[in-house]
Design a protein around this nucleic acid. Structure first.
Lengths: 138, 138
DNA sequence: CTAGGACCTATACCGGGATATAGGTCAACG
DNA sequence: CGTTGACCTATATCCCGGTATAGGTCCTAG
C-alpha cells in the first residue's frame, strides 16, 4: 500500500529471512538505512533495504558474524568518507572466504578419497575393511 | 612411555584439539577405537586413533555435526559389513561440502565485486558512495 | 460489530559446540 | 619424602544465532 514501501512479511519472503530474524538484525544494527514506520508503527522497508539485506544473507552464508556486518552497516550509514575502512573490512572477509574454501577443498579431498576407496572396495566384493584394516590390534 | 601409546596431552598437540575437546569427543562417541587406560586411569591413544581424530578434525572443519561423526565412528567400530552405509554417509557429506563451496563462491563473487568497486572508487579519488549512491533518499 | 491476520514489544528458550571450574588421584623427580 | 604437573570426573557456563511465547495494537473485510 505505501507507494513502494514493503512490510516485514514481504521482506521476509524476499530475503528468505524470518520475520523474527529481520527484527533481530535491526536490533543488532545490521541495517544500513533507517527503517521507518507507518503510523501504525509497522516497519516500512525500501527496495534498497532489501538489496542490502540480500547482501547480508551472503555475508552470513560466508560466515561473517553479525557484529562484523553491523560494523559495515555502521560505516555505510555514516556516509561517504570511510571507504578505505569498508574496503579493509571487505578485503579481510575476502581473505577469510578464500581460506574457508581452501579448508573445504582440503576436507573434500579426504572425503573424496574415502568415497573412492569404499566404491572400489564394494565393487571388488569386499576384502578387508578400508578403514579398520590399517588398525593393528594390540 | 607406553611403547607407542600416547597420552591425551600429546594427542591434543598433534590434532590441534584441546584436551577437554578430546574428552568431549570420546563422551560423544566420536572415537572409532576403544581408548584404553593405563593403570592410573589415564587415556592411552594409538597412532591410529590420532589418524582417526585428524580425519574428525576435517569432518568438523567441513561442518559435519558431532552426531554424524559419531554415527560413522559407530559403523567403523562395528567392523566389516556395513561399508555401504559408510559410503552413503560419506557421499552425503561430499554433497554437502560441494554445496558449501558453491555457496562460498557465490558469496565471494559479491565480496570480490564490492572490493573491486571500492578499489576503483578510491583510486579515482572518490566521487559518490559506491554503496550509498544507489540509494534514493525518499 | 467482530473476527482475523499482520504486525508490534519484551523476554525466554534452544542447540551445538566448546570451554571453564572445582576438587580429586597419581607418578615421577629432586 | 613431598611437590609438581599431567591427568581424572562432574558439572557449570559461555557464545552465537536463531526461534518461541505472551500479550498487545491496528487495519481490513465480512
Amino acid at each position: 500500500m505505501p507507494d513502494n514501501g514493503l512490510r516485514i512479511g514481504e521482506v521476509a519472503r524476499r530475503t528468505g529471512l524470518s520475520v523474527q530474524t529481520l527484527r533481530l538484525y535491526e536490533r543488532e544494527g545490521l541495517l544500513a538505512g533507517e527503517v521507518h514506520r507507518d503510523r501504525a508503527g509497522r516497519r516500512i522497508y525500501t527496495d534498497w533495504d532489501v538489496e542490502w539485506l540480500t547482501n547480508c544473507v551472503k555475508f552470513r552464508a560466508s560466515g561473517m558474524p553479525l557484529a562484523t556486518i553491523a560494523r559495515l552497516a555502521h560505516l555505510v550509514r555514516a556516509g561517504t568518507g570511510n571507504e578505505a575502512e569498508r574496503l579493509a573490512l571487505l578485503r579481510e572477509h575476502q581473505r577469510r572466504i578464500a581460506a574457508q574454501i581452501a579448508q573445504l577443498n582440503d576436507s573434500l579431498d579426504l572425503v573424496d578419497a574415502k568415497v573412492a576407496t569404499y566404491e572400489r572396495h564394494l565393487a571388488a566384493g569386499a576384502a578387508g575393511d578400508p578403514w579398520q584394516q590399517l588398525r593393528v590390534e594390540r
